[in-house]
Design a protein around this nucleic acid. Structure first.
Lengths: 113, 113
DNA sequence: CCTTATATTCGAAACATGTCGAATATCAAA
DNA sequence: TTTGATATTCGACATGTTTCGAATATAAGG
């Protein structure tokens, strides 16, 4: 299943993958993605471990040397393609990775080698 | 090994991955990549199975409905980041995927889940 | 050497992306 | 309800991407 021959001709699925790769193609977004992953490993749900989820885009902004609005923009792009989940929690915004998306990407490259 | 904590702070490596994702972030390039993969599975070297390697960018151009110069450009982008190998063979140009690059990408997502 | 078939480079046009700061929105706590 | 802290949206700008066609390059065969 998920073999190359099938994938190669499934244009809609191909475009979906392309979008995910595009989301990860920016170093800033890739860092945000990995940071959220560290704080909130896939498998846990939002309700189990809220405190360890990555929050505070402002701290990311200062750490990366970018404007908060830029971080906000990148987070949105990641969530638009389903790689990240976003939820407001008071003043902060919690973000965490989508476990299924990672699995999908893992399967993609696993099926190639 | 290749754990997230390390990866997250290794900016040069991160940028390398970002470049690979960018190369795969375009549907046309993703198709070219998968096509070359099908024709020439990783593990085989160029010398073993030259005849089955993907060649003829012109046929790709007509198949994708794009100008030959556009295909040439995309192939170059893929090879620039080490995902594709290119070799002239007479009038044609042979292209095939880099097995190591795929393995690297597989490892990347494997280490996340 | 000319012709034909392929591939690449180049310049240009249209479009998308990354970034900022200002304005606005959301929320908690005084 | 006002203030302070955070996040988002918006408009603008610089830069990058995608694509083409024309010009050039490379190679095989007459």
């Amino acid at each position: 299943m998920s073999n190359i021959k099938t994938l190669e001709n499934d244009l809609p699925v191909l475009e979906q993958y392309a979008k995910m790769f595009k989301a990860l193609s920016n170093p800033v977004r890739l860092r945000i993605f990995l940071r959220s992953l560290e704080k909130h490993p896939p498998g846990m749900t939002c309700d189990i471990d809220v405190d360890t989820m990555l929050s505070c885009q402002r701290s990311l902004a200062t750490e990366f040397g970018l404007a908060p609005s830029t971080i906000s923009h990148h987070v949105k792009e990641l969530s638009n393609v389903g790689l990240l989940h976003v939820r407001r929690d008071g003043q902060r915004v919690l973000i965490w990775v989508d476990a299924e998306a990672i699995q999908k990407l893992d399967l993609f490259f696993g099926s190639l080698s």
